[in-house]
Amino acid sequence: MDMKQPFEKLVVLYGATVLRVCRAVVGPAEAEDVWQETFVAALRAYPELPADANIEAWLVTIAHRKSLDTVRAVRRRAVPVSELPERPSDHGLPEADGEVDPIWLRVARLPDKQRQVLAYRYLADLPFNDIAAIVGGSPAAARRAASDGIKSLRATAVAAAEGESA
């Protein structure tokens, strides 16, 4: 029997996780728009979702697509280029805004794929199999991207800590 729960439950259960993922992937400034786009799209498609689907992975997949749209739009606004190079995003962070915690800047400087994989692994708690299906490539590649991202975040954290104590 198809026992699909009311969509309200999904928002209550996964709203916070999706917001954390959006913040990590597109940055705090654009995150709420992406959250909104994600849940509207999910609500629209919800009746067709198979009853046994992994809802969290499904929502993160939608959030991932909406993030790509947003990141493309932000970059289009920033620099008029025709190709999208794989490079650290500007993350939609207002420059020289003292309010932004340094962790966001460090996350923002990660290459796109590492940032996405870290968000989906550690903020949404998805297995690498699901993550590979979302970002493309193999689970092993996703695992590598996560470990590279961790290494790089760790290095900048150490540098920051040393800078503070110096």
Binding site: A16, L19, R20, R23, A24, D101, I103, W104, V107, L118, Y122, L123, A146, S147, I150, L153, R154, A157
Partner: peptide, 14 residues
């Protein structure tokens, strides 16, 4: 290290 580094409170708090 990885987990508590990535799940920094600033990344999680809403």
């Amino acid at each position: 290290g990885p987990v508590d580094l990535v799940i920094s409170p600033e990344l999680v708090k809403i």
